Amino acid sequence: MRVNEALPGCDERVVTIYSNSEETNRIEDDNEDFVCPAFDALFKVHDMIVAQEFDNDDDYDDNDEYSERQTVVTVRMLVPSDQIGCLLGKGGQVIQKLHNDTNAQIRVINDNLPSCALALSHDELLQIIGDPSAVR
């Protein structure tokens, strides 16, 4: 994992998660699915950030699980430009199916990019909004 330096005037940072390993990890909350170590790390980072947001929320009841709350989270990811077509699919079919399956709002942002995203001109900005489990 690598966290890029903060850029002046930008309150976001780019976090790069990668793995060269060909091994797969079992997803903790799912006994049958395996993912590459980078995806496993991404899921864990997401879960930690969501949990931290709830720890900072005064209205949060410690007995609630975050998946049971009526909370909306926003995730923004940089996707290599040459891979964005795989996410969209022909005629937008893949992204529409993801939306239908998760009920999350998923869109590629082309305007008003943060300066940290502009520095990586070979990437597109993907934004996902929804409940934490759908966004994950």
Results as ranks from 00 to 15, higher is better:
Gly91His: 08
Thr71Gln: 03
Gln93Lys: 15
Gly92Ile: 08
Gln93Ser: 15
Asp40Arg: 06
Ser133Val: 13
Pro37Gln: 04
Gln93Leu: 07
Gln83Phe: 12
Ala104Glu: 02
Val108Trp: 05
His99Asp: 01
Gly89Asp: 13
Lys90Arg: 15
Ile84Gln: 08
Leu120Glu: 12
Glu53Thr: 00
Leu120Gln: 11
Asn100Tyr: 02
Gly92Gln: 09
Pro37Met: 06
Ile106Arg: 00
Ala134Phe: 04
Asp82Phe: 14
Glu68Leu: 01
Thr74Tyr: 01
Glu65Val: 01
Ser121Tyr: 09
His99Val: 12
Lys90Ile: 11
Ala117Leu: 07
Ala117Trp: 04
Asp131Gln: 10
Cys116Val: 09
Gln96Glu: 13
Val73Trp: 00
Asp55Ile: 00
Val35His: 06
Asp47Asn: 10
Thr74Gly: 02
Lys97Asp: 10
Asp111Ser: 13
Asn103Pro: 03
Val75Gln: 08
Gly91Ala: 11
Arg76Val: 01
Leu118Asp: 13
Ser133Gly: 01
Gly92Met: 11
Ser115Asn: 03
Val108Cys: 11
Ala51Thr: 01
Ile49His: 03
Asp40Cys: 03
Val75Ile: 02
Ile128Trp: 01
Ile84Thr: 07
Ala41Ser: 09
Ala117Asn: 08
Asn100Leu: 12
Pro80Val: 05
Gln127His: 03
Ile109Glu: 15
Ile106Tyr: 05
Met48Ile: 03
Gln52Val: 01
Tyr60Lys: 10
Asp131Val: 05
Asp82Trp: 13
Asp62Val: 04
Leu78Gln: 05
Cys86Phe: 11
Arg136Asp: 00
Ser67Ile: 02
His99Gln: 14
Leu88Thr: 10
Asp62Asn: 08
Cys36Tyr: 02
Gly92Tyr: 14
Asn103Leu: 11
Glu53Asp: 13
His99Arg: 15
His46Met: 06
Val108Lys: 13
Leu78Pro: 07
Asp59Arg: 10
Ser115Ala: 10
Ile109Arg: 13
Gly130Asp: 03
Asp131Phe: 03
Ile49Arg: 14
Ile84Ser: 08
Ala119Asn: 14
Asp62Ala: 07
Met77Pro: 01
Val50Phe: 03
Val79Leu: 06
Gln52Asp: 14
Asp58Val: 09
Ser121His: 14
Val73Pro: 00
Ser67Gly: 05
Glu65Gly: 02
Leu113Phe: 13
His99Ile: 10
Val35Thr: 07
Ala119Met: 09
Ala38Pro: 04
Ile129Gln: 04
Ser121Lys: 14
Asp40Trp: 06
Lys97Arg: 14
Val75Glu: 02
Val73Lys: 03
Asn56Gln: 11
Asp57Trp: 12
Asn63His: 08
Ile106Ala: 00
Phe34Ala: 08
Leu88Ile: 15
Gly85Lys: 15
Met77Thr: 08
Gly85Leu: 04
